[in-house]
């Protein structure tokens, strides 16, 4: 197998930085291979968003070693432009430009791929337009392309955020609760889309979710994060109910309450 999509070794982060709502990470060691789909589950405040932001190069002041797509990450500075373009991110709060059209919001995913000076005049290449059209089609947004982002429902906005990431044609997809606002049918469809795209093109995906059933259904591997620590890391088929119970309730099913994980 070729080099890993990313590797983290003994990565830690403390949240004494009051400006960022980031939870602690404690000695996280994790490696994901190209083409692998990994679900990150755990209670709120477990550190899922922090871990994903770190992998996206947006977290500062962490310790340990991290390599993403073959390049070392620095805790002091954001990665280079080409690297940022290769790592796609689906934001939990969507992070859309409200007054722009759906089309332009998705086109914004192409900004790292297109010549910067030409894009400043609003001119994008044919390849950019084709990538946007494909992403809009795949996410079922083609009819809404001209609509302003602030005129969409929560579920539609989430699909725009996913479409923007797909249009980016990333080599690694990180998704922070990408289906939290979708009904079960749409959630399954979009997870199938993201993971299918990843398997087709051999790129790695790591998504966080609060829905263990969907995580098991669509991921190859499930990583359980509690209190900033990896509690388990198993192939999706071998995840037990006890794992879930321990992760969310701090105890094995049927056992006595011994340990409280999370807040």
């Amino acid at each position: 197998m070729s080099a890993a999509a990313f590797t983290l070794s003994r990565v830690s982060h403390r949240f004494d930085d009051a400006t960022v709502a980031a939870t602690a990470l404690c000695d996280v060691t994790l490696s994901v291979a190209p083409g692998e789909v990994v679900a990150l589950i755990g209670p709120s405040g477990a550190g899922k968003s922090t871990l994903l932001a770190l992998l996206d190069g947006r977290l500062r002041d962490w310790r340990g070693r991290a390599r993403v797509l073959g390049a070392p990450l620095s805790p002091d500075a954001p990665p280079a432009r080409a690297h940022r373009a290769d790592v796609g991110f689906v934001f939990q709060d969507f992070a859309l430009i409200d007054r722009q059209s759906v089309y332009q919001n998705v086109m914004n995913g192409r900004l790292g791929r297109t010549p910067a000076w030409r894009s400043l005049w609003g001119r994008f290449g044919e390849r950019d337009h084709m990538a946007v059209a494909a992403a809009l089609h795949d996410t079922g947004l083609a009819d809404l392309a001209a609509r302003r982002a602030d005129q969409l429902s929560g579920g539609q906005r989430q699909r725009v955020a996913i479409a923007r990431c797909l249009a980016q044609e990333p080599r690694l997809i990180l998704a922070d609760e990408p289906i939290s606002n979708l009904d079960p049918a749409h959630a399954a469809k979009l997870l199938a889309l993201i993971t299918g795209e990843a398997r087709k093109r051999g790129i790695a995906v790591m998504f966080s979710s609060h829905q263990p059933e969907l995580a098991q259904r669509f991921a190859d591997r499930v990583v359980g994060l509690g209190d900033g620590e990896i509690l388990f890391d198993r192939p999706a088929g071998r995840l037990s109910d006890d794992d879930i119970a321990r992760l969310y309730y701090g105890r094995a099913r049927g056992g006595a309450g011994l340990r409280v994980v999370g807040q």
Partner: peptide, 11 residues
């Protein structure tokens, strides 16, 4: 989010 997608400062 734009920075994460690779946008330059001007972009």
């Amino acid at each position: 989010a734009l920075e994460s997608a690779g946008a330059t400062r001007a972009q």
